[in-house]
Amino acid sequence: MGVIRKIVGKRRGVDDLIFDTINVTFMLLLVVVMLYPMLNTLAISLNEATDTVRGGLHILPRSFTTYNYAHVFNEAQIIQAGIISVLRTVVGTGLGVFASAMVAYTISRPHFFLKKFITLAFVLTMYMNAGLIPTYLLNRELGLIGSFWVYIIPGLIGVFNLIVIRSFIEGLPETIFESARMDGAGEFVQFFRIALPLAVPVIATVSLFVAVGQWNQWFDVFIYNSSIPELSTLQYELMKVLQSTNTSGGSAADSFSRSLGGQVEVVTPQSIRAAMTVVVSIPIIMVYPFLQKYFVKGLTLGGVKG
């Protein structure tokens, strides 16, 4: 009871008590609804596949094993896909955020004579999408198909991120830049020495957005590089597993076994899918709570001023 009272807080009347009780109950329900599917998948990934097939597994593994993970990490294709996923996330985020910050800096300068023109040119593209086919043909003409760079270059700058960074730099006191100019600092120096260091909170937010977008992307792999296994990513490999289990009904029907040190361990598409889901999701779930205070601020900036 003490815990509940603590959560509910000091009450001021019967009405308030009823409201708070319903509210807190609802929130607890929400937490369960949010967490259950993830914990269930975690349990499946850590449970023996033959045991999972029996059903009734909820949030705790019944017959613990790490074999599903061992199986996932034993596949050369998955290791390769993991490397590409990490690479595209690191390179895509690094280059994308740097480019966005640089352009954002220029269009945040009140004296820049192309400020309006460049801003408009970028913002218009938010609503003017040429569509899949023209984009596909352009990338083909540019020789990006079948290359790693198709993951990086076509989506280099996100307009939303650009606006978020611009709003932040515009909010910095102009006097800092002025005094730097008095000391003879050019635009590059002002960008690298003043704007970038002061914009760390917003850079962190945007980096998180871009990194998550890169890490979670599978569609460009599917469209441009599906015939090149060396350029596949984790999400695309998971997508292929998901599609195959969806069509086959996804159960033990096509399980296969491998002997491991005398003991026979079995994996099913379901257990592999669960283990892969955990592998692709863990990095993000570990990181985002620490950036929470930043992205709340960043989102507000972009939403209100954009």
């Binding site: 993830m38 979670n216 992307q217 998971l238 998901l242 889901t277 692709v280 999701s281």
Partner: peptide, 8 residues
């Protein structure tokens, strides 16, 4: 990702 959510 949507791939993960679709699986869930």
């Amino acid at each position: 990702s949507w791939v993960v959510v679709a699986g869930l």
